[in-house]
Design a binder for these strands. Structure first.
Ligand SMILES: [Zn+2]
Ligand SMILES: [Zn+2]
Ligand SMILES: [Zn+2]
Ligand SMILES: [Zn+2]
Lengths: 138, 138
DNA sequence: TTTAATATGCAACTGAGTTGCAAAAACAGA
DNA sequence: TCTGTTTTTGCAACTCAGTTGCATATTAAA
C-alpha cells in the first residue's frame, strides 16, 4: 500500500513526503470517500496538520489522482480516482436515515448529451435513499 | 407570480407571510438554482434577514416545494421542485471556466439500479465542463 | 554537503450556515 | 373588529469547515 502510494506520487512528479504518503495510503485503503478528519483519525498520532491534509488533497486532486466526491454534505469527501472513467466516476448512494455513503462502482450510466458547443469534463451521479440495513430495522 | 406563490404556500399549509411570498416569488422567476444571498439581492431593501431566508428555504424543502440543488459549491443553491420527477430532478451543468450553472430540464436519465433491499428516493446528476460561451472565447 | 525550491505547522482568519431568545406578525375564535 | 395563542421574524453571538500568511523544516538536485 505504502509502496503503491510512493509510486503514485512519483508518477505525477510530486515530492515524496511523509504526509503525502500517509494520506495516500489511507485513500488507497478507504472503501468510500473520506474527510480530512477521517484521514487524520486513521493516521493517528502522527497525522499531519489539517492544513497540510487539505493542501495535500488539493494537490492530489490537481494531479487527478484523487477526486472530490459529490456528496451533499458540508464537509468535503475525497477518494482515489484510479477506477474512474474519463468522464465519469461511479455513483454514490447516501442513506437519508443513517447518512452512510457507499460507492456503487459496478454501475455505469450513459453520459448526458450536452447542448451543441458544450464540452463534458465530468459527470457525477448521487443517489439518496434508504439503505438495506436501515430498511430492515424499521 | 406573487399569486402563484400564495397558492403554493396554501397548498402545503404554510402561513402566508411577506418573507415567504417574496422568497417563493424569486424562486418562481429564477432560471437556475439560487443562493440565500441572491434571493436577498433580488428582493432588495425589503429583503428578510438571512436567518429567515434560510429557515424559509428549509421549510419549503421540507414541504417538497423546493429542492436543494446538488452543485459542488460551498454555498447552498435552491430551486423550485415543481418540474422534478418523483425520483429524479433534471441534471445541472456547471462550467469550470465561468462557474455558471445551468439547468438541463429536457434531459432525462435512467435510474440507477440499486442493490437489493435499497430504496431510491432521489437521483441527481451533475455535470462539469466548458460552456458554449467560454469555449468560443478561447 | 550545500543550496534553492518546496512543503509543513501554527495561529489567526473567513464565510456560510446555526442558535437562542425576545419582539412582531398571523390567524382563529369571540 | 378585538383578543389570545401560535407561529414567524430579526438580531447578535456562535460554530464549523476550510483558508491564509508566514516562519520553519524537509526535499532532492548539484
Ligand atoms: Zn442507512
Ligand atoms: Zn466512491
Ligand atoms: Zn462558462
Ligand atoms: Zn435546475
Amino acid at each position: 500500500m505504502k509502496q503503491k502510494a510512493i509510486e503514485l506520487l512519483n508518477s505525477v512528479n510530486l515530492r515524496q513526503t511523509q504526509p503525502r504518503v500517509a494520506i495516500l495510503t489511507v485513500l488507497l485503503k478507504a472503501p468510500a470517500p473520506v474527510t480530512q478528519e477521517q484521514i487524520a483519525e486513521q493516521i493517528g498520532d502522527s497525522a499531519p496538520n489539517k492544513t497540510t491534509i487539505y493542501r495535500t488533497l488539493m494537490n492530489l486532486v490537481e494531479k487527478d489522482l484523487v477526486h472530490k466526491a459529490y456528496l451533499q454534505e458540508r464537509t468535503w469527501h475525497f477518494e482515489l480516482a484510479h477506477h474512474c472513467g474519463q468522464h465519469q466516476c461511479h455513483p454514490h448512494f447516501t442513506c437519508s436515515e443513517c447518512q452512510q455513503t457507499q460507492c456503487l462502482p459496478e454501475v455505469s450510466m450513459p453520459l448526458v448529451k450536452l447542448p451543441k458547443g458544450y464540452v463534458m469534463e465530468r459527470q457525477q451521479v448521487r443517489i439518496e435513499g434508504i439503505c438495506c440495513d436501515c430498511r430492515e430495522n424499521k
